[in-house]
């Protein structure tokens, strides 16, 4: 089924759909940060308290989607390089745009970002102290849960992290602008009549994802540099030291 060149395209498209859907859900989750510490912490906790097979099942699906997407892309790129070993003296295009030509580049950077992101927030290797950030705010009972809100705020207070995050989201946006509509083309579920609408939808989706993800680090940075306030100011002590929010430690 997936052995031919078209089979690989189907794999790209199918794994792509999973990831396209995931970023939307993830973005919706992130935006809850604006609803305050309690809301996002309880959301994060509810995700983590899903039955193990649901939690690990979705993690497995996501992880395999990423691996399939990346591995297939790598194999397609290698085949494509072999199919055109000599390049033109003048390489130029009429229709193909920046994003569609650089899916490999944007994809690789996004992959690197995803690894960093997992280490940062999920596995918490980059800032081991995140594991210590526990709170009862947002907890359904009195037990302590991970303080997602604090992690986000403290993470994005780091200029480098924020910039890297925003750049990665921009690349994701470019990747999606081509990738989203490509899903339909590769699976053959597209026709002339809604091609234009699909292309528009694809671009719109890409920008929505960019905006939805970037607004979080942007808002943190804005508050850090006292341009605009979106969060509880106690998370932004004037000393600019590590936050010591009132609920975090006993």
């Amino acid at each position: 089924m997936f052995s031919s060149s078209l089979g690989k395209k189907y794999l790209m498209a199918l794994s792509g759909i999973v990831l396209v859907g995931f970023v939307l859900v993830h973005m919706a989750g992130n935006l809850q940060v604006f609803a305050g510490q309690e809301q996002i912490n309880s959301y994060a906790h509810s995700l983590q308290s899903l039955p193990w097979f649901v939690l690990w099942g979705s993690r497995l699906i996501l992880l395999s989607a990423i691996l399939i997407h990346a591995w297939t892309a790598y194999s397609l790129i290698m085949e494509n390089k072999a199919a055109r070993p000599n390049t033109n003296d003048i390489e130029i295009t009429k229709r193909a745009g920046w994003s569609s030509l650089r899916m490999g580049l944007t994809g690789s950077i996004i992959l690197a970002f995803v690894v960093f992101h997992l280490l940062h927030f999920t596995i918490r290797l980059i800032y081991p102290e995140y594991s210590e950030m526990m709170t009862t705010v947002g907890s359904p009972d009195e037990r302590e849960i991970h303080d997602a809100f604090s992690m986000i705020i403290s993470g994005f207070k780091n200029d480098f992290v924020s910039v890297f995050y925003i750049v990665a989201m921009f690349l994701l946006c470019r990747h999606l602008a081509h990738g989203f509509s490509s899903v339909f083309q590769s699976l053959g579920i597209r026709s002339e009549s809604w091609r234009k609408k699909l292309d528009l939808l694809s671009v719109a989706y890409a920008w929505i994802i960019f905006a939805g993800f970037s607004i979080v680090p942007l808002s943190v940075m804005a508050q850090k540099y006292q341009i605009f306030e979106s969060y509880d100011s106690t998370f932004f002590p004037p000393s600019m030291e590590e936050p010591t929010p009132k609920h975090s430690k006993k």
Partner: peptide, 19 residues
């Protein structure tokens, strides 16, 4: 499969061919 065997690359949907 004849197309694949001939050593052509893969479609990336960017439409340069049609242009």
């Amino acid at each position: 499969s004849a197309m694949d065997e001939a050593g052509f690359g893969n479609c990336r949907n960017y439409g340069e061919c049609s242009a």
